[in-house]
Design a protein around this nucleic acid. Structure first.
Lengths: 228, 228
DNA sequence: CGATTAGTTGACTGTGTTCAATCGCGGTGG
DNA sequence: CCACCGCGATTGAACACAGTCAACTAATCG
């Protein structure tokens, strides 16, 4: 078994949607995928290109963004180990409407449309897993949409901090990306985010340590402003 | 065959996800669903309730909204004949985080979580159809997200008008909902929408007739502003 | 045709963006 | 381990956009 093959099996094993499969089936699927590596900053695909592959993140982080008509970019999501993208490719010859950029050294498992369709036909239970994941993301996207149109930036930021705290099970949160990216995700600018965080710190609600660490001191106050 | 049963079969037949099934299978599925009717303004479900059913719209319109933390409502989508909602119920005992309201006399086919899971297990091709629909909606939601964070309301409105024109294959567009709802959908207020439309009319770009009809006179100009 | 609801318009205010200058964290090499 | 440099982050000032509240008008339905 080649090093490469071993790597691919490993890649497939990692992914929630392929769990609960027989080992030999997993090997067969692995043999259909191939591994691609990217350095930080490399583009994985561009808007306008044909969408022909399902990408599964094995290692690293991938940033998916969309260019707004006015030229600014909106961060849609960050993929980490086990996440996938490109599921729309399954159905029709689509055109990407977003950009995917590796934001750290990254390893992806890539499967062609045809191969993945075949896999799904053979393993219906996988399509349920994919459906579950996509449904969940839709729900998330709708949540974010609601937040984006809450005009008050402070509310969006407070919400986001509380979400992070819950996700990370601690009040000492580590920002998963740069403040620039967070601002883009929250539909505001770096400057506004910075100002709001400073003002929260002045009020004693949070404590910023370095560029990526925030300690939540008064969750209750943060929660309050999201509800008025 | 009772009138009720006949109705249900009809309801199931309408829906894209159940197409390409044998007649008897369709009848079996129909027998698992039951029909619910609502008047304009009736609530179908509330946020906070358990999500136990898949709802398929047979007739009428359903408005799905989300309450923002600050108390305002964001319109997520409008369902029409053949659309469905509640697919998240398939996977776990979820809680609704949105409100569904009938916005005209409406007939729904309702299927319980258990029954629908059983149907999917028997007909894997249906889960592919559901996946296709959900993927498509995710893509739409991401598009809307991008639009929502375009700070300029005029851009969002122009984009929306152009989308409608494309959807309806004409420059004489009919608004699919009230201006109040459109404003909510676009993340702005009734007043701002009204002002922007008036200003577009002054510039000679559009022509409003009554409350729901708009003729696009200078699509090119509308397109231009969305790209700066 | 009249009532009721939807939409329009005006004046004011507040928040966030923009552009530009400066700061300081954190990684790199000595 | 410390000093340096570059980029991310912060801060300031001016302006403009859109939200709010309130009064008014127009359209649609029975």
């Amino acid at each position: 078994m080649s090093e490469g093959h071993h790597l691919k099996t490993h890649c497939i094993q990692l992914v929630p949607i392929f769990q609960n499969l027989e080992t030999e089936e997993m090997e067969r699927i692995a043999s259909l995928s191939h591994v691609q590596t990217y350095d930080k900053g490399d583009m994985i695909y561009h808007a306008g290109e044909e969408e022909n592959f399902l990408y599964i993140v094995h290692k690293g982080k991938v940033k998916v963004t969309r260019l707004m008509e006015n030229g600014k970019e909106q961060l849609l999501r960050i993929l980490e180990s086990g996440d996938f993208m490109g599921e729309l490719a399954l159905f029709t010859k689509n055109i990407h409407d977003s950009y995917a950029e590796s934001s750290s050294p990254t390893e992806l498992c890539v499967i062609t449309r045809e191969d993945f369709q075949e896999i799904l036909a053979k393993h219906p239970e996988i399509s349920m897993k994919v459906l579950e994941e996509v449904s969940h993301r839709l729900s998330q996207a709708e949540k974010l949409m609601t937040q984006l149109s809450a005009q008050d930036a402070e509310i969006r930021i407070a919400s986001y901090l509380l979400d992070l705290a819950e996700e990370q099970h601690t009040n000492n949160i580590v920002l998963p990306m740069s403040k620039k990216d967070i601002a883009s995700y929250l539909g505001t600018t770096q400057e506004t985010l910075s100002r709001k965080l400073s003002s929260m710190q002045e009020k004693g609600w949070i404590n910023q340590k370095g560029h990526r660490h925030i300690r939540l001191l008064e969750k209750e106050s943060l929660f309050q402003i999201t509800h008025s």
